[in-house]
């Protein structure tokens, strides 16, 4: 009998590296190194994960059912070495979204208290 899926709240809050990892997988399957590069690129090198940390994260996310290993290879030509690819599960997607909601509500609260300015809408 598979274990019952725990509620999304159970996983919150996520650590920033975990959230970044899930976000990195949101637009397609990636292998570990690609996740690492993607995070560095999107944050302009502000967040840089090391290999050990990354695979420990992947391991945890896999164990929690947030991501799964996939056999599909998006583009063999981009990939000269055989690597494991990971895909965001529906649960992983919900958890990431919930975390972002949580962060947004904090940001909203901070703006209401004028801790940070509202972005100018253009």
């Amino acid at each position: 009998m598979p274990p019952r899926t725990p509620p999304v709240d159970h996983f919150l809050p996520l650590t920033p590296p975990m959230l970044h990892t899930l976000v990195a997988l949101a637009d397609g399957d990636k292998h570990g190194y690609a996740i690492l590069k993607e995070i560095a690129r999107r944050t302009e090198n502000a967040v840089r994960l090391s290999a050990g940390t990354l695979y420990a994260l992947i391991r945890r996310a896999e164990g929690d059912g947030l991501i799964v290993e996939t056999d599909d290879r998006p583009d063999i030509s981009l990939d000269d070495e055989r690597r494991r690819y990971y895909r965001l599960t529906p649960l992983g997607r919900r958890v990431a979204a919930a975390e972002i909601d949580r962060l947004e509500s904090i940001v909203e609260m901070a703006r209401a208290k004028k801790l940070v300015p509202r972005p100018r809408s253009n």
Partner: peptide
Amino acid sequence: VFPFDFRADHGRDMEQTLRAQ
């Protein structure tokens, strides 16, 4: 240095990642 299970699952990927970096 990592535990056996960890190595079995991610050892090769990790080596490749380190090499690429």
